[in-house]
Amino acid sequence: MSKRTQVSAVVNGDPVDFLTDPGATLLDALRDELGLTGSKEGCGSGDCGACSVILDGRLVCSCLVLAVEAEGRRVETIEGMAEGGRLHILQQKFLEHAALQCGFCTPGILVAAKALLEVNPDPTESETRYWLAGNLCRCTGYDKIIRAVMDAAAELRQVRV
C-alpha cells in the first residue's frame, strides 16, 4: 500500500495538515482529505479549469498540482471567497447576471475571475475572455459570465475610489 505523506499548508487562511499519497493531486486532497468539494474535476488534465485555485498567489489548476507540492504553501479555494456570510462582489454579480446555469464550472470561473481582477482591475472584454479561456462553460455561451465579471470589476473600482 501507499506510503502516505503528511502535508502542512494554509488553506483559505487556516493552517491544515493532511495525509496524502505522493501521486495524489492537490484537487484530490482538497476534495477527499479536506472535504472542500467546491473545486470540481471536469477533466483531470488542466483543460477545463473547474478545479481552479490560487496557489501562493498564482491561479492554477489543482488537478495539475501534486498534493505534496502544497507543503508550506497558501491555497485559496472557492470556499474561502465569501467573507463570513458576505458574498464577494463577483459572487453577487454572478447571481444578478444569471451567469450560471448548471453551476459546475462556476467555482472555478469565480476563482479565476478573482485572480484576474487582482492583477487587472479594469479588464476589457477581450482581456476577460482570454483570461478565462481556460475555464470551460458549456451552458451559458459565456455572455453573462463576461458581463458579470466586467460589472464586478466596475463595482470594485468604485469601492476602491
Binding site: R31, L36, T37, G38, S39, K40, E41, T77, I78, E79, M81, A82, L87, Q91, F94, L95, E96, A98, L100, G103, F104, T106, P107, L110
Partner: peptide, 19 residues
C-alpha cells in the same frame, strides 16, 4: 429574481454527483 439555488452554486456548497 436571483435563483433560489444560486448562493449554493457560487460558494461551492452545491453537491454534484461526485461530491
Amino acid at each position: 429574481p436571483i435563483r433560489p439555488d444560486g448562493v449554493d452554486k457560487v460558494t461551492g456548497r452545491a453537491l454534484y454527483g461526485a461530491d
